[in-house]
């Protein structure tokens, strides 16, 4: 794999994960457990879709086949999507929503932090802006995980269930593949060992404070999103998200 190919692939991963998680949060519009949470969820969703747009724009320039950011977001099918499986998991209850957010935020935070020092200046620039937003996402989601874990009996049970349900998708966050390794070696992407170490460190710290038990490190992990092999959920997410673009393929302006 050449470095350029790996870079295109890597940018799509960043973009798609942001996009799909943003889409999941959009589904909660008007359905949050408190009005204040409506504001907060939409804030996070806005940040994520905004970041996705930045990554797509850069990816579109490198791919250079006439597709723009919108075409990349709205005209690729599930097998072409490169998002982490974690991000496409359904909202279920608010413990799952926040657990998903927390596991992803920790990964996102350390990834972006490293990307601010990327040898690719464009990436470093996008990451610097995104990092400020994601620092806040992480603060919020880790607080909710603690509130649930150390809140009532019911919230503790729900949060522990959420950790158990989501655990099998955490491996993909920190298990590097060839693309990740090429990016790391080029000084573009994060050091993969460091990322895994940082992720484990923070997740364990927060879960401990929340009186929750993490899954086993050697647990079976469900992976494949980064290569386009997704859970059954993604097809439905895209069917909804891409509806207009697919139903009116001749429309060039919206």
């Amino acid at each position: 794999m050449t470095q350029t190919e790996a870079l295109k692939e890597y940018l799509l991963r960043l973009a798609d994960s942001d996009m799909i998680l943003g889409q999941r949060l959009c589904e909660l519009c008007g359905k949050a457990p408190a009005l204040e949470e409506e504001m907060a969820l939409m804030n996070v969703a806005l940040d994520l879709v905004g970041q996705a747009r930045n990554w797509y724009e850069y990816a579109a320039e490198l791919i250079d086949d006439g597709r723009d950011a919108d075409k990349l977001a709205f005209r690729r099918d599930a097998h072409e999507y490169r998002n982490l499986l974690m991000t496409e998991q359904p909202n279920e209850d608010y413990a799952v929503t926040m657990g998903r957010q927390f596991f992803f935020d920790v990964y996102h935070y350390f990834t972006l932090k490293s990307l601010t020092e990327s040898s690719d200046e464009r990436i470093a620039g996008i990451a610097a802006k995104a990092l400020k937003e994601v620092t806040y996402h992480l603060r919020r989601s880790s607080e909710w995980v603690k509130r649930f874990g150390d809140g009532t009996e019911e919230s503790h049970r729900r949060m522990q269930d959420a950790v158990d349900i989501l655990w099998r998708f955490t491996g993909e966050l920190i298990t590097p593949d060839d693309t990740d390794r090429v990016m790391a070696e080029a000084g573009i992407g994060p050091d993969t060992d460091q990322l895994a170490k940082d992720w484990r460190g923070m997740v364990n710290e927060v879960l401990t404070q929340a009186t929750l038990t993490p899954g086993a490190e050697d647990a079976w992990m469900y992976m494949g999103g980064k290569h386009g092999e997704h859970t059954e959920h993604l097809g439905f997410i895209l069917a909804e998200m891409q509806f207009l673009q697919r139903a009116y393929p001749d429309a060039t302006t919206w």
């Binding site: 408190a34 009005l35 204040e36 504001m39 907060a40 804030n43 603060r139 919020r140 607080e143 509130r147």
Partner: peptide, 14 residues
Amino acid sequence: HAADAEMAMENARD
């Protein structure tokens, strides 16, 4: 509205 001061701060920010 918030359950504690920290949440109040975040809600106010949002």
